[in-house]
Amino acid sequence: MLRYLIGRLLTFIPTFIGVTIISFSFIRVLPGDPIIVMAGERGMTEERYNELYQQFGFDRPLVVQFWDFFTGVLQGDLGTSYVTKRPVFDEFFALFPATLELSFCAIVIAITLGIPAGVIAAVNRGKFFDRALMSSALIGYSMPIFWWALLLIIIFSGNLGWTPVSGRIDLLYYFPDVTGFMLIDSLLSGQDGAFVSAVRHLILPSIVLATIPLAVIARQTRSAMLEVLGEDYIRTARAKGLTPPRVNGVHALRNAMIPVITVIGLSVGMLLAGAILTETIFSWPGIGKWMVDSIYRRDYPVVQGGLLLVALLVMVVNLIVDLLYGLINPKIRKR
């Protein structure tokens, strides 16, 4: 296990350097002058251009620029936003709790519904439940979530008036950020109705964001279960006279979880991609909206730094998932 852990940590380093290179080189290597793009259609004077050119350090050799960037990254310095003049690092961590809260709710929905759905479908293979669940999963999997969000807004906010359209909480409530998680902060504030308001704001975005991971987890659970159910050790379990819930829920599911864990890990990337659309539509002040806004504003330090941080986030989650994978799969654990 220790060797596995160290080996896995070692692969992290080149990937980290690679991600740094990629986010660094996007602006510098790809065609298109970022400063001119930043200026937009208004254009800019030559003086201003030169000033910016130096400010970004574009006049120095690429290698030097990269070294500065890289050492900056290691010290937690990702540059400052061109628009807000605040450090990219600080902005990221100010907005991160909002995205984390949303993603966490989404993944909880996806896991708690997706795994049972997949197991039920696999056990009832070919029957009504299987068909119904898997058809829904395929629709969810094919869903353009930006449209799905609009549809839910039309129905639940427009026609029924049950849920708010945007934001994290009603403007009526004001309380200080303690944890950055609205659900916790609203409870801590002790204000009447604050928590309910936070929950009502969270419902639609979480459902939208959970849709695709839910479908993917359900489908993966089903196929992993089907594969495992054909294994010899399942026959052994049944030959012991175990009940179907025990055979399926303990002997099969435990083995089927191994590929499902991988998929849950991969769905973190999906969640962040989905968060870009979901947060934009619901005006959710998180990382996704921040990145999109920065791209619109041509705020390149933020785009560069944000890309790096998001990639790092995904990598860290993948690392955690790999370690979990080692825990659940005894073949790796005892190696």
Binding site: I22, F26, L272, M291
Partner: peptide
Amino acid sequence: DIILSIPSLLLALVLVAIL
């Protein structure tokens, strides 16, 4: 691995923003 560690839509957005 590196390309896969960046959420696909975000990577596409950034690429398009630059191109």
